[in-house]
């Protein structure tokens, strides 16, 4: 299988403000968010990133999406470097996180056109893609309603279609089903499976073990900014279920009893 995403020795540290030092009761001025992190994702697979809060999952995904720059190391997205060719990388990926919000003043219709144009798409291309995705997610009926007036589930659907307006080959979702009702969560999960069938590569960061077990081909566990386990799901869950494997590793690496 073709390696479509290669993460090599990624490192990122953050300066801790005096306020944060006080909150976290630490005297450390630097926090290592990601330390020499490496993994690969292959064409047509769903890769799950698991880890507790503050493990470095979001920082890793932000570096892949070029929102923040790595201190050292690199990520190659279909051969393009996030350090040297960030604009090219952004054209190849779709990135969705709960932190990325849509302008609530606009309608889904307007936002889809807007982001399509930013991705350099032609008008006809945008229209065709919009028809497909809006029908697929049932957005057509509220396409002209302002985002501010939509429910959380509807907003999440709009965010999702906007993030993949340009039909990218690599899709990165940070906690894609967080805060969604079961129906919308199922629509999203089914769609991720559909993307895989289409030969797309999906990177998912989540806390939900069942989701990983259901959709992921391979899984990586990040604890304290380090990739402590990276393998195929069948190999990881050979002896124990994913949840037990995770907590065993967590207790061992983080030095905390679970």
């Amino acid at each position: 299988m073709k390696e479509i995403l290669v993460v090599k020795d990624l490192k990122k540290t953050f300066r801790i403000s005096a306020k944060q030092q006080k909150l976290e009761r630490t005297k450390e001025k630097i926090k290592v968010a990601v330390h020499d992190l490496s993994f690969q994702a292959y064409e047509g697979e769903i890769f799950g990133l698991l880890g507790p809060n503050g493990a470095g999952k979001t920082t890793t995904l932000r570096m892949i999406a070029t929102l923040i720059a790595p201190e050292s190391g690199d990520v190659l997205v279909d051969g393009s470097s996030v350090v040297r060719e960030p604009d090219l990388v952004r054209s190849k990926i779709g990135f969705l996180t709960s932190e990325l919000k849509l302008e609530e003043f606009f309608t889904p219709n307007y936002l889809f056109d807007f982001f399509g144009q930013l991705h350099g798409m032609e008008k006809e291309q945008i229209e065709t893609r919009k028809r497909d995705l809006f029908d697929r997610f049932g957005i057509t009926r509220f396409a002209e309603v302002k985002v501010a007036d939509l429910s959380t589930g509807m907003k999440q659907k709009v965010s999702l279609v906007v993030s993949i307006v340009h039909n990218p080959d690599i899709i990165i979702f940070d906690e894609p089903t967080n805060g969604l009702d079961v129906l919308t969560a199922k629509v999203v999960t089914d769609f991720l499976m559909e993307l895989k069938v289409q030969g797309k590569t999906v990177i998912v960061s989540t806390h939900i073990f069942s989701l990983v077990e259901k959709i992921c081909d391979r899984v990586g566990v990040i604890i304290n900014g380090t990739m402590v386990l990276c393998d195929t799901l069948p190999s990881v869950t050979q002896e124990k279920c994913l949840e037990d494997v995770f907590f065993d590793i967590y207790a061992e690496r983080a030095g905390e009893a679970v």
Partner: peptide, 8 residues
């Protein structure tokens, strides 16, 4: 941030 993840 939503704007910044586009290739613009």
């Amino acid at each position: 941030a939503t704007l910044l993840v586009t290739p613009m």
